[in-house]
């Protein structure tokens, strides 16, 4: 247990600091969200209509930013070797790394998401729902994104490869999350979208670590 805590502390410190932490993710997110009204024009009704979708797409893109660092640095400097030589299975290491990634990028983005949605004209009464869907979606992005990052280990320009691998897998949480927000904005039932999003997140959390561990072992051998 103390081993896992030590790992979580290290991973969070590494994901949080050293460039590419929460400020970069939130800054990028704010940049994308601000760009939309500039491109679409100041029609408030149209902006309000696309606010949930825009907030979620920007969230998916901002989640890509720091994925490369999840495994690449440990792979290059030999720390990944050490992480395998322990009673803690590599699958647990991968899960902890994904959670740390979420703490450093997903959680700050989940706090920024309702603010961005409101800025685009969405109704403040759904801020809570926006936060919850963004937090759940961000967790899915961390586990799925980590899998892509592990698969791209050792490749040149791994960050680009990671983006190409994971963007299609980011589609379901975007569909479910933005769908739930859109339904709520239109006064329709939104629970099914939220439940589907939660289901996808659970599946990603269950399968992602297994895939990440296998990809890491493969990269090391």
């Amino acid at each position: 247990m103390s081993r896992l805590l030590a790992l979580l502390r290290r991973e969070t410190a590494l994901a949080w600091g050293g460039g590419g932490g929460p400020l970069v993710a939130v800054g990028f997110y704010a940049g994308v969200v601000t760009m939309l009204p500039l491109a679409i024009g100041p029609d408030l009704e149209r902006l309000a209509g696309i606010a949930p979708a825009a907030a979620f797409v920007a969230l998916a893109l901002a989640s890509l930013l720091s994925l490369e660092r999840m495994f690449e640095r440990d792979y290059e400097d030999g720390a990944l070797d050490l992480l395998t030589l322990s009673p803690t299975p590599l699958e647990a290491v991968a899960a902890i790394k994904s959670i740390a990634q979420w703490i450093a990028a997903g959680a700050p983005l989940a706090i920024a998401a309702p603010i961005a949605a409101i800025a685009l004209g969405a109704s403040p009464q759904h801020a809570g729902l926006t936060f919850v869907t963004a937090a759940l979606g961000g967790l899915a992005f961390a586990f799925v994104g980590g899998t892509g990052a592990a698969l791209a280990l050792g490749a040149r320009r791994g960050a680009l490869l990671t983006a190409v691998i994971v963007l299609p897998l980011f589609a379901p949480p975007v569909i479910f999350g933005a769908g739930a927000l859109q339904a709520a904005a239109n006064g329709l039932a939104w629970t099914s979208g939220l439940l589907l999003l939660a289901g996808y997140t659970l599946a990603a959390a269950a399968l992602g670590p297994v895939a990440m561990a296998a990809a890491c072992r493969n990269a090391l051998s």
Partner: peptide, 30 residues
């Protein structure tokens, strides 16, 4: 898992972290 140490020419130490933190982590992990 528990009975061997591998010390490669790459030491797994992160350049921007304090020596204290890296040492504490590597020791705790082992």
């Amino acid at each position: 898992a528990e009975h061997l140490h591998l010390l490669g020419h790459q030491d797994g130490l992160k350049p921007h972290r304090l020596a204290r933190d890296e040492l504490a982590f590597q020791a705790a992990w082992a």
